[in-house]
Design a protein around this nucleic acid. Structure first.
Lengths: 226, 226
DNA sequence: CTTTTTTTTCATGAATTTTTCATTTTTGTT
DNA sequence: AACAAAAATGAAAAATTCATGAAAAAAAAG
């Protein structure tokens, strides 16, 4: 399940920049330009992390943070123009998980979002596209270390299920169930054969690393970014 | 239990500043001026968080981070003079929980330590389950005293059944039934052999305690927390 | 219908895990 | 203290499990 990030920021230019960076990295995003409607929004839909501008026109960011924290435990990253040490400490003290000062790099912000979510949601916090993989769902393509992979149908399905949950160990049965449409019951090392082919293609891109881990007697998993 | 913070920093002035700030805020601290001895140190004593300078004289911080993360799940905060955006992104990508650029405010660093620990350890204390064990079902992984165990299939199954019911005494037959898929009727000290292997691996992590209790003539159980 | 690609199956050898077994150590009881 | 039963231990044997290469079988493309 792709993490949903709520961006609370009144300057459209900044909000858009953040949104673009996060979506490029595989997150789902939503923008709110005012602080007051946030609680309603949280009550209605799922949200995994909030990026909160402190200088909102309608309500003080610190106050809003307190209000949110009174009801929710979800992580909050403060965004602000105030670089004062005191502000930063107070911000973190008050319960923020991170504190980013403007002007900031969108890529760094996205990386910080991922760092916080890694702790909060565990393996589920990864957006599609970890371990050097990026899934382009629309084009049905997978990129590995910047290189487009030429994959057959089941190779794609298999690799996709791995990428969507990096680190999770899948049994062969489980993989069959996830990557094959009909419950193809026969399983005489079929998965193994495909894994072998995938590995060969990944090796062609990056010869010294094998991101697929074999768990003897259990199944396979994809290496998480370390 | 006071959290223990390991500071890995080669400049004494900076290390002392950090130490002072953290101890003022109630943390226990320890300073290491080199990177290589870190793994030994981790094997010996408890540590809840690492502050890691990237520019160490003996080993690259990123490499060290990977080495630590291969065995431990504890949070790491990077400390560095490099303000480059690329470095920051890579640092967070690689598994750091936060990334602080020099020069920095000691009070802010301490606040960030608290923010990370709040997520990692909960409001107070360790996240550990029974007797220091944590089961990560998705990753098919068991952590013992913060250390990732390398277990074979049946070692994993066996230890898992113990952890799920701490204190309960299981007969060998019962363990066979629970941890083996087919009712493997053979029972010639098979369980004993696996228990032996598990104990050896636990001993490698914590030499002075054996959390597995033998009940003569009956079976085995896992020590409960007090 | 033929050719090509993909998927599945199979056999082999190597590596690891599991099991067995003989021996030593521990434990509880007389 | 001595004894017997049970468990720990170390090492060898047996059994799995997996990677690999290659050959069928099936599906897709031309």
């Amino acid at each position: 399940m792709t993490p949903v990030i709520l961006i609370i920021e009144d300057e459209p230019a900044i909000a858009d920049t953040i949104q673009y960076a996060l979506e490029t990295d595989g997150f789902e995003t939503q923008i709110l330009s005012l602080g007051r409607p946030v609680l309603e929004r949280l009550a209605e839909n799922r949200c995994d992390l909030i990026i909160l501008d402190i200088g909102l026109p309608d309500i003080n960011g610190m106050e809003l943070c307190k209000l949110i924290r009174a009801q929710y435990t979800l992580p909050i990253i403060f965004l602000t123009a105030r670089a004062d040490e005191v502000d930063r400490v107070v911000g973190l003290e008050i319960g923020a998980d991170d504190y980013v000062v403007k002007p900031f790099s969108p890529r760094e912000l996205s990386a910080r979002v991922r760092a916080v979510l890694r702790r909060t949601m565990g393996p589920a916090g990864h957006p599609a596209g970890a371990s050097g993989f990026i899934i382009d769902t629309a084009r049905h393509r997978i990129t590995y270390c910047g290189r487009i992979l030429d994959l057959s149908k089941y190779e794609f399905n298999l690799l996709e299920t791995f990428i969507r949950r990096p680190g999770q160990v899948f049994s062969r049965d489980h993989l069959m169930a996830l990557a094959w449409e009909d419950p193809c019951c026969s399983m005489d090392r079929t998965v193994d054969a495909h894994i072998k082919n995938i590995r060969a293609k990944l090796k062609a891109v990056s010869p010294d690393t094998d991101p697929i881990i074999t768990h003897r007697g259990v199944g396979y998993s994809l290496k998480e970014d370390l």
